[in-house]
Design a protein around this nucleic acid. Structure first.
Length: 530
DNA sequence: AGCACA
C-alpha cells in the first residue's frame, strides 16, 4: 500500500483547480462568482447556491495554477475577497472537478429536495415560551402532512422523506414525473408556505394537552415565522422506510397530550410511502381516525356524523360555549355549539363541517377531561343531527357560521385577525384558497388515485396529471380558519390561577360568556366565510 | 464560514 491513504486533515487542502467558496451572499449569481474569479484565470465550470444555506459555491479553473494564484492572492491580500461587500472565504475544494449532475439540457428529476427555513425550535419566540411557561417545550415539528398537503396540489405525491440537518429541515418529495416536480418547484421555490398551511407542534408534558397545542397554533399565527421553501430537482428517490417512528418522541411521555400529538403527527414519521397501500401507514390512522363503519370485530359501529354529542361528567366547573369551542376547535372549524341539560347532566352538541373532523375530535377527546383533576370529563358519540338549528348567540348556543357583522366584530381577536397570513406571492394569490389543517388532510386517502389536494392547483400551468377526486370531500375548500384553535386561544394566561399555571385557555369558572360587543377574544377570524 | 443530496 502506498502512503496516499494517509488521513487528510480537514482544514488542509491540497491544491485543486476547483475552489470552494463559502459565506457567499444569498442567491449569489454565477456572474458574481465569475466576476470575482476571472482575474485569475479561465473559469470552465461553476456550481452555485450549494449547501443548505445556498451560500457556498464551487469554481473550476481551466488550470491548477490559476486556482493556486487566486488562493495565494487572497491569502496574502489585506483586502478579503468580497461579493456584494460580503467577505468570501476561498479554499481548495477537496474534489478536482465539478460534477454537475444536471448538465445543460438535462432532464430534471421527479424528486424535489425541499429546504424549509425558519422551522426550528429556536423559532418559538420567548413570548411563546412565556405564554406556555407551564409547559415543557421540547420540539417543533413540521409535519409530513403539511408537506403532503402543499405538494400534492401539483400531482400525485409518491413518497416523502424528511430529515433534519443542522442548517434546517429538508424533505425529499417524489412525484410521478419531472414535469410535476417542475411545476411544484416553479410554484413554490423561494416562496413562503403560508403559515396557516403549517402546523407547528410543540411537545408539551402537561395533562391539559390541548392548551399548549392551541397556544402553539395561536402563536404560530401571531408571530412571524419565516418559512420558505427552496427546492431543487434531484434524481435520487427518497429512501422511505415505513413504520419508522419517532421513537424518542414516542417514548418520551405517555401523557394525554402526547396521545393527541401522536394523532396529530399521525404517524408523521420521517417518511411516508403513499404508493404502497399495504404497508401500515399507521394503525392509529386506520383504527382511530378513519373511523370505519365496521369495526375490526365485524360489528357495525354507530353511524358517523359531523355532529358530536358530548356528555360532560363531573362538571365541577362551568363549561361554557366558549370553553367547548376552545376545546373542540383544536380539531377543525367548529360551526355550531349547543349546550343543554338532559337527565340531570349536561350535554352539548358540537357541529363540524365534516364527519372526518368530528371523528378526529371524537377519537381524541373521548374520555378526556377538560380540566385537570378529572373535572368535566367528556364522553363523545355521534349525534343523529347533521345540521344544528341553534340560536346564533346565546348563553347555551353559538352559530359561528352566521355572518352578523356585529357578532364578528365582537369575535375578532385584536392583533391576530389583522395579521392573517396570506399567500406571500402576490402573483399567486389563489394558491392556497383552501388550505386546511391536517385533520382532514390526515385522513385523505393516501393511496394512488386517492390523493386529494386541499386546494386546487388547476390554475397552474399544465394540467396536473392526476385525477382529482373532488367529490370525496365536497367541502374541501375550507377557509384557512379551519386551522384549529388559534383563533379561539382566549385570554393570555395572565389571569391563570397559580395552582394551574397552564390552564389559562379554559380556566375553570373564569371564562365569562361573551356578549356581543364584549372584549372576549373568542371567535373565528374574519375570513371565516363560507 | 468549512465541500456539491440524506
Amino acid at each position: 500500500m502506498s502512503t496516499s491513504s494517509q488521513p487528510q486533515f480537514r482544514y488542509t487542502q491540497t491544491p485543486s483547480k476547483v475552489l470552494h467558496l463559502r459565506n457567499l451572499p444569498w442567491e449569489c449569481a454565477e456572474e458574481e462568482l465569475v466576476e470575482l474569479c476571472k482575474p485569475f484565470g479561465k473559469i470552465v465550470n461553476t456550481k452555485c447556491n450549494v449547501g443548505a444555506n445556498r451560500n457556498q459555491a464551487f469554481v473550476e479553473f481551466a488550470d491548477l495554477n490559476q486556482a493556486i494564484s487566486m488562493v495565494s492572492y487572497y491569502a496574502s491580500s489585506s483586502e478579503p475577497a468580497q461579493v456584494r461587500g460580503k467577505t468570501v472565504y476561498i479554499q481548495y475544494s477537496n474534489r478536482h472537478e465539478i460534477v454537475n449532475n444536471k448538465s445543460p439540457g438535462d432532464v430534471p428529476g421527479n424528486v424535489l429536495l425541499v429546504t424549509i427555513e425558519g422551522v426550528e425550535a429556536g423559532d418559538v419566540s420567548i413570548d411563546v415560551i412565556h405564554l406556555v411557561s407551564a409547559f415543557c417545550l421540547k420540539d417543533v415539528i413540521i409535519s409530513i402532512r403539511n408537506l403532503f398537503q402543499v405538494f400534492s396540489a401539483f400531482g400525485f405525491v409518491h413518497k416523502i422523506a424528511t430529515f433534519e440537518k443542522a442548517a434546517g429541515f429538508q424533505a425529499l418529495i417524489q412525484f410521478t414525473d419531472a414535469e410535476t416536480a417542475s411545476a411544484a418547484r416553479n410554484a413554490l421555490d423561494g416562496r413562503s408556505i403560508p403559515r396557516h398551511a403549517l402546523i407547528l407542534l410543540v411537545l408539551a408534558s402537561r395533562t391539559c394537552w390541548f392548551l399548549p397545542l392551541a397556544y402553539l397554533i395561536f402563536c404560530a399565527h401571531r408571530f412571524e415565522y419565516k418559512v420558505s421553501v427552496s427546492s431543487k430537482q434531484v434524481m435520487r428517490e427518497p429512501r422511505v422506510k415505513l413504520g419508522k417512528q419517532i421513537t424518542d418522541v414516542l417514548s418520551w411521555k405517555s401523557s394525554n397530550f402526547f396521545n393527541l400529538l401522536r394523532r396529530w403527527i399521525l404517524f408523521d414519521e420521517y417518511c411516508r410511502d403513499y404508493t404502497n397501500p399495504y404497508l401500515p401507514v399507521n394503525p392509529t390512522a386506520i383504527e382511530g381516525v378513519m373511523q370505519p363503519t365496521v369495526g375490526p370485530d365485524g360489528k357495525k359501529k354507530e353511524p358517523e356524523s359531523n355532529v358530536l354529542l358530548a356528555s360532560i361528567e363531573n362538571m365541577q366547573y362551568a363549561v361554557t360555549v366558549d370553553v367547548l369551542h376552545t376545546v373542540f376547535s383544536a380539531f377543525g372549524t367548529v360551526q355550531k355549539i349547543a349546550i343543554f341539560e338532559k337527565n340531570g347532566g349536561t350535554q352539548a352538541l358540537v357541529q363540524y363541517p365534516d364527519v372526518t373532523t368530528a371523528g378526529l375530535a371524537k377519537e381524541s377527546l373521548e374520555g378526556h377531561c377538560i380540566y385537570d383533576g378529572g373535572y368535566c370529563k367528556l364522553h363523545l358519540s355521534y349525534s343523529r343531527h347533521t345540521d344544528l338549528n341553534v340560536k346564533a348567540y346565546s348563553d347555551k348556543s353559538r352559530d359561528y357560521t352566521v355572518q352578523d357583522p356585529t357578532l364578528l366584530a365582537a369575535q375578532q381577536i385584536p392583533g391576530v385577525s389583522a395579521a392573517q397570513p396570506v399567500w406571500q406571492n402576490p402573483q399567486a394569490p389563489s394558491m392556497y384558497p383552501g388550505s386546511e389543517y391536517a385533520a382532514t388532510a390526515a385522513v385523505q386517502p393516501q393511496v394512488p388515485g386517492g390523493q386529494v389536494p386541499s386546494w386546487n392547483p388547476s390554475a397552474q400551468a399544465g394540467a396536473p396529471p392526476y385525477v382529482s377526486v373532488a367529490g370525496t370531500f365536497p367541502s374541501q375548500t375550507y377557509p384557512p380558519s379551519s386551522v384549529p384553535a388559534y383563533a379561539t386561544a382566549p385570554t393570555p394566561p395572565g389571569s391563570s390561577p397559580s395552582s394551574q399555571p397552564g390552564m389559562a385557555m379554559a380556566q375553570p369558572g373564569a371564562q365569562p360568556n361573551v356578549r356581543p360587543g364584549g372584549a372576549s377574544p373568542l371567535g373565528n377570524p374574519p375570513y371565516y366565510n363560507r
